[in-house]
Amino acid sequence: MDEMEGFLSAQPERIFPLHTTHTPNFLGLTINRGLQFWKNDSNYGKGVIIGIVDTGAFPDHPSFSDDGVPPPPAKWKGKCEFKKTECNNKLTGARGLRSSNTSEPSYDKEGHGSHTASTATGNFVKGANVSGNAKGTAVGIAPHAHLAIYKACAERRCKETDILAAIDAAVEDGVDVLSISLGDSRVQQTPFYKDTIGLDALTETSISTEGFIYLFNQ
């Protein structure tokens, strides 16, 4: 490869474990400040398309109901690989990006992708509880936002190239925000010029005609 014209560098592919997002804390959405912000200044995410790079999603989960969610904006160019009846105004897109199984549907076998997706965009679900305990209303940060699923992970492991493919696909589809809850304990020791995910996010943002927000949990 060194002798190929235009070749710059190569490095071994990294495998990233899944993490749990701390986005609410990062945004300062504490119980008091968060509810006040939500009540007075938020449109509940209407018109925003949030992409989740993770293990897929359970399309029939009540958090992904499109009750009260308008159709996605005209800029949306993605596709939904779930059954037609499982896609709606909330769950507008789902794509499988795992290079080891490109024909694999985007269904969530781990639960992690559904967890992070519902945290970000889950619609209002009344009567949520755990075995009858702690009954209340479960809801995500932007309940009226649209959701696009990009399955790049399985068995709690995510290949670096699959993550990059998912980011590229999401930006091409027209997402506004990307939530990526995975990371590497060695990330602080990795020079930025070797952090391919960070470089890809920087490149996508700089070549795009619109602004994007990336929420990484590394």
Rank of each mutant, 00 (worst) to 15 (best):
M1K: 08
D2E: 14
E5W: 09
F7A: 01
S9L: 06
Q11C: 02
P12Q: 02
P12E: 08
R14P: 03
R14A: 10
T21L: 13
T23D: 02
P24F: 07
N25E: 15
G28V: 03
G28L: 03
L29G: 00
N32V: 15
L35W: 05
F37Y: 11
N40E: 14
Y44I: 01
Y44T: 00
G45T: 01
G51W: 01
V53R: 01
T55E: 07
G56A: 11
F58R: 15
D60A: 05
H61S: 07
H61T: 06
P62V: 09
P62T: 08
D66I: 02
D66S: 08
D66L: 03
V69M: 07
V69H: 12
P70L: 06
P70S: 06
P71D: 15
P73Q: 12
A74M: 00
W76A: 08
K77W: 01
K79S: 12
F82R: 01
F82A: 07
K83S: 07
E86I: 11
E86V: 10
L91D: 05
G93L: 09
G93I: 10
A94R: 08
A94L: 07
L97S: 05
S100L: 07
P105D: 10
Y107K: 07
G111I: 11
G111S: 06
H112S: 04
S114Q: 08
S114D: 08
T116L: 05
T116M: 09
A117G: 03
S118K: 08
S118M: 03
T119G: 10
A120H: 02
G122E: 01
N123M: 06
K126Y: 09
G127M: 03
N129R: 04
V130M: 05
G132R: 00
K135C: 04
G136Q: 11
V139S: 04
G140H: 05
I141Y: 03
I141C: 01
A142Q: 05
H146L: 06
L147K: 00
A148D: 03
I149Y: 09
Y150N: 03
Y150D: 02
Y150V: 04
K151Y: 06
C153N: 13
E155Y: 12
E155C: 12
R156Q: 08
R156Y: 08
E160L: 05
E160S: 02
E160N: 08
T161R: 13
A165K: 15
A166D: 09
A166E: 12
D168S: 14
V171E: 14
V171G: 03
E172C: 00
G174C: 00
V175R: 04
L178R: 05
S179D: 02
S181A: 13
L182D: 09
G183W: 02
D184Y: 01
S185F: 13
R186N: 13
T190I: 15
P191T: 13
P191V: 10
F192L: 10
Y193R: 06
D195G: 00
G198E: 00
G198Y: 06
L199H: 04
T205A: 14
I207W: 11
I207Q: 14
S208C: 09
N217C: 12
